[in-house]
Design a protein around this nucleic acid. Structure first.
Lengths: 146, 146
DNA sequence: GATGCAGCTGCGAACACTTGCATTTGCATC
DNA sequence: GATGCAAATGCAAGTGTTCGCAGCTGCATC
């Protein structure tokens, strides 16, 4: 895995110690490509590497999220999901009825972030958002009154 | 409590059974006025009423959230918070460094919801949003590079 | 008022996640 | 290469939340 060195550099630049556990945890998220749950990370790391305690994984994920290396999202599934921060910032449209997840370009919320900063002085972190609602397909279907 | 009858009507209209537990749980949220955590709800109900199992509270809160009676928000405190859905829809600006929570008028995100519906056909539920970021005060303070 | 049934409740167990603490380890310094 | 320290780890215990199941209850129907 060529990304191990790269990950080590990212860690060091962030002022964190480079430990095999951290490198393996972050590599697992990076290779997942899409969202990956905490338990999937644990499983992945234990398969390819060795035993890593769950609390270590949670702590590493929390600090990586703080440092902006990964996105942490509650998709409403009961488990938190993580994603490596790539070049393209994007959001997710989550359909409550069918559970379908669609990616959404960042441009939609750029204006909101600007507005918030200008009017409220609040520097919003709109890097990764989970927007719940009802998708096109489910709107067509008849459903119970809410 | 005059709201008990009202709450019972709301429940019945939503197609749910009116049980004393549900009425008391919803009344507790209603009277809280602001955000209230799940454990506060449990405590409140047990103080004023009688023993209600935690799983019943969680199930009631989940179904009430589904029905749009309450908002469910992860404020990043580790515990989920609930709020009775009133007339005014609003959002929350949460400052990561200082933990301060500010209310935000709905108008900021109205445009986004419209845009999403027109372009993606996605009916977004932007009724209650938690936006993380850095508030004015914390931006002024010097802080570690992230 | 008796009956039937769907849906709700309480219980216990399981899962998801956090925290405190003693030990280990990366890494800067000598 | 040895040393010291802050930060990271593993462990164990604890909290928050969900789930399956057996029994109970609101409510519609007769």
């Amino acid at each position: 895995m060529a990304c191990e060195n790269e990950t080590a550099i990212v860690l060091r630049e962030a002022g964190q110690k480079v430990t095999p556990q951290r490198v393996h945890i972050l590599c697992a998220i990076r290779h997942a490509g899409v969202h990956i749950t905490a338990s999937q990370v644990i499983e992945e790391v234990r398969t390819s590497h060795a035993f890593v305690d769950a609390s270590t994984v949670y702590r590493t994920l929390a600090s990586a999220s703080d440092l902006g290396l990964v996105y942490e999202t509650d998709m409403g599934t009961g488990e938190r999901e993580f994603e490596w921060v790539g070049k393209d910032r994007h959001h997710h449209l989550i359909c409550r009825p069918c559970g379908d997840v669609t990616s959404l370009d960042n441009s939609y919320l750029d204006g909101v972030a600007t507005l918030l900063y200008e009017e409220a002085g609040f520097q919003a972190d709109l890097g990764h958002f989970a927007i719940f609602g009802v998708c096109k397909g489910c709107q067509a279907k008849p459903r119970r009154a809410r």
